[in-house]
Amino acid sequence: MTSPIEIEGAVTSSALDKEGAPQGDAKEPKKLEGRSPGQLMWRRFKRDKTGIISAFVVLFFFLIAALAPVITKLYGKDPYTFYGQDDPTLLNEFNLPAGPNGGMSPEHWFGIDPNYGRDVLAYLLYGMRTSLGTALLATIGMVFIGIVIGLTAGYFGGKIDYWLGRLIDFMLALPNQLFMVAAMPVIVTVFVAPDEETPTIVRFLAITGVMWLLTWMSLARLIRAVTLSLREREFVEAAKVAGASPWRIIRKELLPNLVTPIIVQGTYLLPSTILSVAFLSFVGVGYQDPTPDWGLMFATAANIYEQDPTYMFFPGVAMVVFVVAFNLLGDSVRDAFDPKTGR
C-alpha cells in the first residue's frame, strides 16, 4: 500500500479504488492473510462492550424514529388527533390530563399532553423522527461543506488557504447559537411572504440551511490540518509526478486518508446537531406546533411543569439516554479508529 496511514483499504475506498486493488493483492504474500484497516477497526470496535451497547441504543432510537408511522399504526394512535376533545373525560377543567401521572393509562401508555390531549407516545415517536431526520440531513450537509472547504484550503494552500482561513475565523467569531436563532426568520422570509403561514417544509429547509451555514467550521479546520500534513507525504508526491490531476489526487489519495477523522467527527457532530435542532424548537424559531418535534415537547413541558410534571419525563429521559449513548459511541468509534488515544 502506498499510504502510510493505511486507510486505503477501508471499506469506502476499496469500493472506489478498483484499479488499486489487484496491485495490492499481488504484493501481499498469499499465506499471511492481510487485514484491511477497516477490518482492524471493526475487530477493535467489537471488543468494546460499551461501544456495542451504545451503538445498539443509538440504532434503536433511529429505528423507532424511522418506523414511527408503523409503530403508531400498530399502537392505534396518531400524533395529530386531539383525544382530549373527542373524550372530554381525559382532560380536566384546566385542560390538564385528568388521570394520574399525566393521564397514563392502558389506552395512552405515556399519557396525554395538556391543552389538546394528544397521545404522548405517538407524538414523541413522530417528534423524534422529525428531529433525527433533520439533524441527520443537516450533519451530512455540514460534513460535506467541511470536507470541500477543508480539502480546498489544505490542498491548494497559498491565497485560497489564507482567505478560507479568514472566513473560518470570521464564522467562528459569530455568536453561533444566537446567530442560528437570528438567521432563521431571514431564511424563512426568502421563501415565504410575511403574511402567509410558513409551511413545515420551509421550516425544515431553513433549519438545515442554518446548520449548514453555521457549523461546518470545526470540521473544515480539522480536515485542512490533516490535508496539509498529507500533502507533503511521498505518496501524494508520487501521484503528482506520475501526472495525476488535482481532482484525482484529492479523490484517490487524500480522501481515503480522511475517512477516519470524518467518521469520528461525524459521530460527535450528529448528537450536537440534534441538540441544536431541539434548541431552535425550544426557543421558538424551529418547528411549530402542529408538527411533532422533540424540542417542541420541552418548550410545552417547561411551561406547564408546575401543573403536569409527568409530561417532561418521557421526552427528557429519552433524550438523556440517547445523548449519553451517542457520546459513548463517539468515544468508542474514536478509540477503535485510533487506539493511541487512551482514556
Binding site: 410534571p309 449519553v324 459513548l328
Partner: peptide
Amino acid sequence: SLVLSSFQIYFLGPIVLGIFVY
C-alpha cells in the same frame, strides 16, 4: 459527568424547580 453533561438545561431546570420550589 458523562451522564450530567447529557442533560439539557430545559430538562434539568424544571426538575430542579420542581424539587426545590414547587
